[in-house]
């Protein structure tokens, strides 16, 4: 029996696989927070611009897209595994990586949903005081 695994996993692929959910969460927060700031600035300089609709649309679409992608990672992790590590999972170590990725994706889905729903209940550009 060989002392070591026969495969060599690509490091960047493994990194992106493990961080699938957190990367989606970070992207969602960046787009939501940055997009809202940008659109509110544009609305302040143009009376015709409907910031509320634009922001709700942007954050709604982003939440849906990143949330679904994150849930997908948690439910069907083998597909991103094959895509990013360019091989099938074979041993217990791969099982551990997949387990970590699934739980992180599930947590990230919660984070995305938690931040996304706020758009439905709060004014979009009003100052906090």
């Amino acid at each position: 029996m060989s002392l070591f695994a026969r495969h060599d996993s690509p490091v960047i692929g493994a990194l992106f696989f493990l961080l699938w959910g957190p990367i989606l969460w970070a992207g969602h927060l960046t787009i939501a927070y940055g997009g809202q700031a940008l659109l509110c600035t544009l609305a302040a300089s143009s009376a015709d611009f409907d910031a509320a609709t634009a922001i709700r649309l942007l954050i709604g679409v982003t939440t849906l897209a990143s949330g679904l992608a994150s849930v997908f990672g948690a439910v069907v992790p083998r597909l991103p595994f094959r895509l990013l590590l360019r091989r099938r999972p074979v041993d217990a170590d791969d099982g551990t990586l997949i387990g970590i990725m699934r739980l992180l994706s599930a947590l990230a889905s919660l984070g995305i949903l938690f931040a996304g729903v706020t758009t439905a209940v709060l004014p979009v550009c009003a100052q906090g005081r």
Binding site: L29, A32, Y33, Q36, A37, C40, I55, L107, L110, G111, F114, A115, T118, T119, L122, P123, V124, C125, A126, Q127, G128, R129
Partner: peptide
């Protein structure tokens, strides 16, 4: 939170703080 940032922005970060 007390610096006058838009309420919606505060909500994003409040959600992450609890998460």
């Amino acid at each position: 939170f007390t610096t006058g940032i838009p309420t919606l922005s505060l909500a994003f970060f409040s959600a992450a703080s609890m998460a």
